[in-house]
Design a protein around this nucleic acid. Structure first.
Lengths: 218, 218
DNA sequence: CTATATTTTTAGACTAATCTAAATTTTATA
DNA sequence: TATAAAATTTAGATTAGTCTAAAAATATAG
């Protein structure tokens, strides 16, 4: 079994290596989990020893298959708990991250199997992120950043790539919630800001930065 | 905030000091949490430093008011999670202890308040043990051991004082579950074994040892 | 009421995870 | 391509929690 701390490193490496499993630098990990690079180096050696990552000195790390599985399992638990917190306990989508961060380390596959069933086998968490199955497989939808759309195109919001409470609260307030249909009216060449119509009703303008972090299915 | 480990010590001291808050020996703690007496001594100093216990060298320890509150809060979380696991996820009463042992350390009073509400503010856990309120107050019912009853007396099962899975499974199989009405038919003087009638129907005989661990309201 | 047994504490050491400071390697630049 | 800058690793130390072995205090028994 991996320690609480090892799990956090695996999760960080997973998130940093994108979907393609690309090499992750030591520094990027140290930033992600707020430790010194020296501490990260120590842990990388340990994870390599346990065959959870492959690590080449001065070059970086990638998850091995078993490391990837372990990471997917933690993410599965995190996202299932988020669904529980929002759907059953009535938390808002911007309030659940920190609690799920703790719950994800609870160790019982029976518990997770039953929770999954209790929640009706959800496929995404409250932010639209996919929940991997118990074998670690993600069911990838093709998600597009709103910033990539051209006038006339439309899509429905299916996820976000920024999870801070402040951003989520802004989306909530603006009506940019999961499932909302967006139709692009205009993209301003000057700064990339996007004017769009939400659910065929409300017209608003968002910055390029915001548009980059909203993901839609076309 | 207290560490995971500190919380486990506080809980152990609480359970060992009965309801009367009596002095707990170092050795009894080391047995309870399966560590050496030397380790316990170290931790007792630390807890005393934090004013969670009062500790007199070579004499033993008692919880202070703030230690008692902290312990009650952990027990509250443990028991609420047990209710969740049994009522919502369908675990059996003998399966939930170890998982609740992990969940009890999750740190969010908002989470516990919402869980409490979601469960309908239960007053006891699946073993009949009282759930303290958020101020740490237990709602004590007067519970009597079956071994203290005389022929002719009856009561309904409201708790157990032994929580091992093996014992709970035995009770389950025998029909000695929470709420069952017991009427004492005979107490054998030779070994204290008790013959009783469950729910006015089924007659069985249990050992004195078993009788001591079943608690009823008369 | 002394001698022995038991309990508890102290001393010193270990592991996991972290840190700072210094050394080394890689990358970027002039 | 030599050199400076940045990234990474190593060395050595620290903290929390644990351990074993030895010392000290308390309890028990003759």
């Amino acid at each position: 079994m991996n320690s609480f701390t090892e799990e956090n490193y695996l999760k960080a490496i997973y998130h940093l290596s994108k979907d393609d499993g690309s090499v992750v630098t030591t520094n990027s990990i140290s930033e992600a989990i707020n430790t010194t690079a020296a501490s990260v180096t120590d842990m990388l050696k340990k994870l390599a020893e346990k065959k959870l990552i492959s690590y080449v000195k001065y070059q970086g790390s990638t998850l091995t298959e078993s490391g990837r599985m372990a990471a997917a399992n933690i993410i599965r638990k995190h996202r299932l708990w988020e669904v529980f917190l929002v759907e059953k306990l009535g938390f808002k989508w911007d309030e659940v991250h920190d609690i799920a961060e703790e719950l994800e380390h609870i160790n019982s596959s029976e518990l997770i199997a039953r929770l999954d069933q209790y929640l009706g086998f959800p496929k995404t968490d409250p932010h639209g992120d996919p929940i991997p199955d118990s074998e670690g497989n993600f069911n990838h939808k093709q998600l597009t950043k709103v910033s990539k759309l051209s006038p006339g195109q439309q899509g429905s919001i299916s996820g976000v790539s920024e999870h801070s409470a402040i951003f989520l609260q802004f989306l909530e307030k603006t009506g940019l919630t999961l499932g909302a249909v967006l139709k692009i009216k205009e993209v301003l060449e000057f700064d990339g800001s996007v004017t769009l119509i939400i659910d065929h009703v409300k017209e608003i303008t968002i910055s390029r930065e915001v548009a980059k972090n909203i993901l839609v299915v076309i």
